[in-house]
Design a protein around this nucleic acid. Structure first.
Lengths: 123, 123
DNA sequence: CAGCATCCCCGTAGATACTG
DNA sequence: CAGTATCTACGGGGATGCTG
């Protein structure tokens, strides 16, 4: 059989990769995936690590990432509840690219602030 | 004088880098910055390249990126209007990391779809 | 502890119309 | 061509309360 497929193109509105792209670059997804790159984490640990995320959004984000095969959810015990989240192989492959992005933003912060100031001064 | 500063930490809710991070990972920003990595582009060219973006959102996204010093806006002529957008040095440094992200998503699409199917089958 | 259900609000983003 | 202005709605996302 032929396995020829259209190459995925995230620039096309209706390419399925666009949706995956938005899952991955979502407001909380990058931070959650990056946090998990340090190792498996429990729900509460993630909640504290990703400062500002609500329970609802963390839960929702994790569900999307699990559905996309980037995160694995494991229930260790029911009473007391103990759930652990781990990166899958796919998630592990993705994480370094997100960390590279975070590193850039953190390093570039002074330059960004300088650019804003310079611009504000002109106006 | 001492130039000591708190290291930027995007995981902290009130660190200024969080805001820059959201500017850069915004719904359209990644695609716009990546498109500009091919070279300078005019407004209409970007609008066609980034399929699905409205004039309003493209304009808004470009303003944010310009303000953050990632994109340069140059007016070439007023009648007829001709405006060109270019990556700054900072934007040029960022773009490859975004392209790495896009490449991953496009390459991983089959695996993501497979993960979804496997999951749906179980349910 | 790890969520889900519900309510509700505000902002984001789309559509549309207009301008230099 | 390259936007701005205005209106609207839809849903993202917070707060709260409850459960196994």
């Amino acid at each position: 059989m032929s396995t020829s497929q259209q190459a995925a193109d995230v620039f096309s509105r209706n390419c399925p990769s666009r949706e995956v792209f938005e899952d991955v670059t979502g407001k909380w997804a990058v931070l959650v995936l990056s946090a998990l790159h340090q190792g498996p984490r429990r729900f509460g640990e993630l909640r504290r690590r990703v400062d500002g995320v609500s329970e609802k959004m963390l839960s929702q984000t994790l569900q999307v990432l699990e559905r996309d095969g980037l995160v694995l959810r494991e229930v260790r015990s029911a009473t007391p509840p103990h759930v652990e989240y781990t990166l899958t192989d796919l998630g592990t492959a993705l994480a370094p690219r997100l960390l590279a992005l975070i590193d850039f933003v953190e390093d570039a912060l002074p330059q960004v602030l300088a650019a804003r100031t310079a611009r504000d001064d002109r106006a």
